[in-house]
């Protein structure tokens, strides 16, 4: 039977939730699942891939893979696809996934679909539902003339069950061939945030103009900390320099689809809605009852953010203790 190869990613030694989603989905297809684990840091967590559904793990403990390099990684992934004879390759729409897999597809003549929100696999038939035009319509992507199909899924779209610690997998160490490199990673400048990236966060709390000034993000951070959420922002406040661009949600920022999105003081310009309308549950807190954000919201609170948000933080604290 044809195999599924899952490109896995780790953060601080833990298999990312987005990779867990992919492995568990792949296992449910009934096909043998090969997890690809690259780098000495990631290799320490190789057993986790088995606990989430991999029957085999391809691993390279070479420290050269500890920093992402497109040329190095695309050669390794192409070789792993060939060695595993996988016909379906799954990865996450992460910074690495989006950069890497299209290059791999070009290298080996595979089809690639990015930003998937639903996937169905039936035998060799793979269909991927994805939003187009910032979620204004949906389409089903089908493969043709592609002996290898590569799918990049958005995070938080597939269910995750707890790891099954009784499971193990065949671990195969591979010394992947390295091309001569024209790309050198000189330095990695760590961001200040230790939290999950916006695109992978399960809960996002975003602030906008309604916070009046940069200091307004203090209470947004407090709320986010209680919820274990990542903080986002509207374009207006990024352009005003209140927060960095890496926090921007929307058209020229990040597309997010968390389980819960809380928009505070964000009116809901179409450019912002474009980046968050795929969220499962949207809470809007705004003083203007006519703000467009309420048209996308599941729950709305018309009121003063400075009164509501601290109360919400207190009440969440109590609610989450039970």
């Amino acid at each position: 039977m044809s195999k599924v190869l899952v490109f896995t990613e780790f953060q601080n030694g833990s298999l990312k939730r987005s990779s867990q989603e992919l492995l568990q989905f792949a296992a449910k297809t009934g096909k043998p699942v090969v997890a690809l684990v690259l780098g000495a840091q990631a290799a320490a967590g190789a057993a986790q891939a088995a606990q989430h559904g991999a029957s085999e793990v391809f691993v390279s403990k070479d420290t050269a893979y500890d920093a992402y390099n497109p040329e190095l990684f695309s050669a390794a992934v192409a070789e792993a696809i060939q060695k595993s004879a996988a016909t379906l390759v799954l990865a996450s729409t992460s910074a690495t996934g989006k950069d890497l897999l299209p290059r791999v597809a070009a290298k080996i003549g595979a089809g690639v679909v990015s930003d998937g929100t639903e996937i169905t696999v039936s035998g060799e038939d793979v269909k991927v539902k994805k939003p187009l035009y910032s979620g204004k319509c949906f389409v089903t992507a089908q493969f043709e003339n592609a002996s290898v199909k590569i799918v990049l899924m958005r995070a938080n779209q597939l269910p995750v069950a707890a790891a099954d610690t009784t499971k193990s997998a065949t671990i195969t160490e591979i010394a992947f061939a390295k091309p001569s490199l024209k790309t050198l990673i000189k330095e990695i400048i760590k961001g200040t945030s230790e939290k999950l990236d916006l695109t992978e966060a399960n809960i996002v709390v975003s602030g906008g103009r309604g916070l009046k000034e940069a200091g307004g993000f203090g209470m947004i951070n407090d709320l986010a900390n209680v919820l274990g959420a990542t903080v986002g922002a509207s374009r207006a406040v990024v352009d005003s320099g209140w927060v960095g661009h890496s926090m921007q949600v929307g058209q020229t920022g990040k597309t997010v689809a968390p389980s819960l999105y809380i928009a505070v003081g964000i009116s809901g310009a179409i450019q912002h809605l474009a980046g968050m309308s795929g969220s499962k549950v949207i809470v809007a807190i705004n003083s203007d009852a006519n703000a467009p954000i309420f048209q996308k919201a599941t729950y709305g609170i018309v009121g003063d953010a400075f009164e509501i948000v601290p109360k919400l933080t207190e009440e969440f604290k109590k609610a989450l203790q039970h």
């Binding site: 992507a141 089908q142 493969f143 592609a146 003063d304 109360k311």
Partner: peptide
């Protein structure tokens, strides 16, 4: 290698539930 079929509009979102009363 990839073909898009079955274009569709997103499902209608139910109207927002406005929460009332004091803060």
């Amino acid at each position: 290698k990839v073909k898009y079929v079955g274009y569709s509009l997103p499902p209608e979102k139910p109207a927002v539930k406005q929460l009332t009363g004091d803060a």
